[in-house]
Amino acid sequence: MKLRPRSVLSALGVAFTAYLGIGWPWWEGNFSDHWLATAAAVALYLAASWLAIFWGQRSGEVKRRGLVDDAGMTTGGGGPTLLPAWVAALALGTAAVVPSVVWASVDEAARTQPYATWTIGAIGALMAIVVVRRRPIVAAIGIVLLTIQGAFWIGLLPSLSLGLVGSAVWTAMAQLLMWSTDRASLESTQLTRLQRAASEWLASQAGRQRERRVQVQRALAVAGPVLTRTIATGGDLDAHERELARLAEGRMRDELRGRRLLDDDVRGVLEAARQRGANVTVLDEGGLDGLGERGLRVVRAELADVLRNAQSERIYIRTAPHETVAVTVVGRSREDGEDTVDLWREIALPLPDAEKRSAGAGR
């Protein structure tokens, strides 16, 4: 069985408040004339204390107030949450009523006895619980009310010597502990986020390194034979070899600049366009980053159809972030000494599958 810190602290709180509420030596006092009021005061104290310990708050409201951080022990689901207002009001009412009821139920000469002054420590414990449940202002008001009642019934100095100082110190220490644990929780959360960001950055760098290695290998596979031949001949290539070098350069540029646009069909039509003498430029500037493999297949198939029928002397294929357009294909040729656009095609950005299904259902 795994014990959670909250469960252990709650059990300790219940045991301590139960000891303060019903463990005091009531038989030593003279409560016979006011036993009902005294019993009601004890019951009110126990009810307020245990409600303050156990009565929770809906997680949605806690998050809406900005008091939850799932990574922190003191601010997350396993730590103390904001005490509901009505429970805080009940605890404050208990602090204002119970001490006076108990002191009024005994003789004036016996009001400094343990069976009459137990309320000082009891209210202090209750206010410490209220602080832990994130109601420090309510707890401070409760300590002030306890001080006023103590000064009225037994005097300020006797109250201080009989536990009022300890109750105030409990409440203040509880607030200091909450501040320190919340700060530690926040710093732990920030550290976790920084570690996660560092891990993601390292993973992205490793991915980019692998991508660069793959691109270099492809470039070497495409241009390696031509480079070897060029080195072997000292750059003295014949017309056929120069044509092969031009085609190899084009293929290498395509692999480096627009790899996501390429499949076997697109590579084939690009090669055919270059073989007939066209100057082809492929440039991917991020317009396809949000597409999955199915959407890329649709774009590549349409691009291959467009290029298969293109007769332009210069062809520019470019992607860029756009709401509706995935790829723009522009072809230019010279006619009668004029440079004219004889090809313009925009390939639409495919809809995600979920949007396609919803659009189909709407029709």
Rank of each mutant, 00 (worst) to 15 (best):
L256K: 01
G235Y: 05
V222K: 07
R242Y: 01
A206G: 01
H240M: 13
T233F: 03
G166C: 01
A248P: 13
L162V: 08
E255K: 09
W153Q: 05
G224I: 00
V214H: 05
R251W: 02
A219Q: 08
D182R: 07
G166S: 09
A203E: 10
I231P: 01
M178Q: 03
G250M: 12
E187C: 00
S188G: 11
S159C: 11
Q175D: 02
A197L: 04
A174N: 05
S199D: 06
L191Y: 00
L186E: 10
V266D: 03
L270D: 04
V269Q: 11
Q195A: 14
R183F: 07
S185I: 00
M173A: 11
G268M: 06
D236L: 15
G224Q: 07
A232Q: 14
E243R: 15
L162F: 08
E200S: 02
L261N: 10
G207E: 12
M252E: 09
E243F: 15
L244M: 08
L157M: 14
R208A: 11
R208W: 06
E255W: 07
D182I: 06
E249Y: 08
E241F: 10
L202T: 00
M178I: 15
A272Q: 10
R196P: 00
E211M: 09
R213F: 04
L256Q: 10
R260T: 13
R267F: 00
R260E: 11
V169H: 02
V165W: 08
G268F: 05
V169L: 14
A151T: 14
G166A: 12
R213P: 00
G155R: 13
Q195Y: 04
Q149C: 05
L262T: 08
L220E: 11
A219T: 09
A168L: 04
R210C: 00
R242W: 03
A232F: 04
A198W: 01
I154N: 06
M178P: 01
V169I: 09
L156T: 04
A206F: 04
D263C: 05
V226Q: 14
A174S: 13
D238G: 15
W170Y: 11
A219Y: 03
A245R: 14
D238Y: 08
R242K: 12
G150W: 01
V214R: 13
L270T: 08
M252T: 15
I154S: 08
V216G: 03
V216F: 12
L270R: 13
R193I: 02
L237D: 10
V222M: 07
S167A: 15
R183S: 11
E271W: 07
R251D: 13
T181M: 06
D263I: 10
W153N: 08
S159E: 06
Q190T: 07
A151Y: 04
L164M: 09
R253L: 08
D264M: 03
A239I: 02
G207M: 06
D254F: 07
V169T: 01
R193Q: 05
D265R: 15
S199N: 05
L191H: 00
E249P: 02
R246N: 10
V165K: 00
G163V: 02
P225Q: 05
H240C: 03
V216K: 08
